[in-house]
Amino acid sequence: MAQAELLQAGQSASASKPARPASARPAAARGAAAFLTGTGGGRAVLAVILPLLVLVLWQLAGRGTGSLFGGVLPTPDRVWAAWEVWAFGKSGLGLNPYSGTWLANVLFSAQRVAQGFALATLVGIPLGILIGWNRLAAGSFDPLIQVLRPIPITAWLPFAIAVFGIQSMGAVFLIALGAFYPIVINTTAGARGVEKNWIRAALMMGARPSDILLRVVLPASLPSVFTGLRIGLGIGWTAVIVAEMVAVKSGLGYVLWDAYYIGRMDVVIADMASIGLLGFLSDRLILLLEHWVLGWRRLQSFQN
């Protein structure tokens, strides 16, 4: 095992600098790094260099006053300090209204995204399959979707507040709506693109319509479905922030806007970073699921 690692490090002699610290770290940590960046150890290091450089320059540029652009953009160390108080400070005490509320707000937002996204998935995938497969369904649902789709989710905000009030459900509605379109449209494209001979083969083997839908059209559409899920989830995170800024009184979007109003730009930046992190992690989660479900496809693309 150790020898194999040495061999590998030796083989990538040109990239020996990144390979050496990588092999010094425990295997689990390396695996995690590779998972997070979607690349091997050497490239993981490469991927970190540019963001680190930006952080260092940012820090150096704000040296002295601790901020840039006349106090608008606090330096990374101050953002980090603000995040520490936000995350681990005692709650309900003192002048900082955010102290110790990070996890609670993350959970608020994540839960709304999860609910809205689940709703969009539960409706979007079956409907997409149906539209892609059935001419009657396509004729009735497709035009409606195409007419509603150009309305941005932000335009739905007043409607959502009017219907659901200042409550979680309004945010969940907007997330579900925003995520629904890419899911249903990509699923439809996947279902329409199923190879004719797969359907013929299934028919020839005596498959009923339900078998064809569940055993052929659905699995054949899954690559497109996952594309839709990833885009939908991204829109879901956009929607939750917008909704929480206006229509709810909790979550990362609420804190973002609130902190801006009271001039806490350090919290604003920490909040933005938190949103990015959550979006990234949830996208990785979908990728992991895709990796597992579409193993057959990965194999195919290696061969061709």
Binding site: N197, R200, A201, M204, G206, A220, W296
Partner: peptide
Amino acid sequence: RPGPDRAVVFQEASLFPWLTVWDNVTFG
């Protein structure tokens, strides 16, 4: 209509790429 009494072998096999050999053969 199509049916298992007239089994078809397609030009490019047209197997289901997400199923193993066993699952492809037992699909019918």
